[in-house]
Amino acid sequence: MTIDRAGGGGLALLALWVLWECRRLPLGSWHEPGAGAFPAALALVALGLGLAIVAVGGRATRLVDVDWRETPRALVIVAAGAFLTFGLERLGYRPSVLVALLFLVGAVERRGLVPTVAFAVGMAWGSFYLFNTLLKVPLPVGPLGF
């Protein structure tokens, strides 16, 4: 499996799914396209392009030869981002940022306790002050009042 074939195949599958979903939308006629016509046409184009990439992608780099070394850390960052997003309106902006940063800087980057806490608290409260107070961008406050 090469990188081109993986990417092209993924696009083709997505296009097939979009085509399947278009059945719920009115296609209209050739002369008067409906809400589903343009997405269906785009999905057909994407399907064609995806299959073309699969067809000619045999000489590209093999998927196993790609450097995936950063994957474990990238997944941890995604998990931290997901937690931050999940907690934003449930816990509040500052507690979510605080927990995410304590985890990333302390557990993942293995910094000392004092610099980790100082950085996390500084970022959580400092960015809240910058955006919410100074720039008037409303940020969510949690059930604990911060």
Binding site: I77, A80, G81, L84, T85, L88, E89, Y93, V97, A100, L101, L104, V105, E109, R111, F119, M123, S127, F131, V137, P138, L139
Partner: peptide, 26 residues
């Protein structure tokens, strides 16, 4: 190791602030 967590936070706050929507952050 300190820069990328800060960038992550700015990315989240930047996206959330546009519409105040968690869906945008997802």
């Amino acid at each position: 190791g300190l820069l990328y967590p800060a960038i992550l936070v700015f990315c989240v706050v930047g996206v959330y602030a546009v519409n105040g929507s968690v869906v945008d952050v997802w």
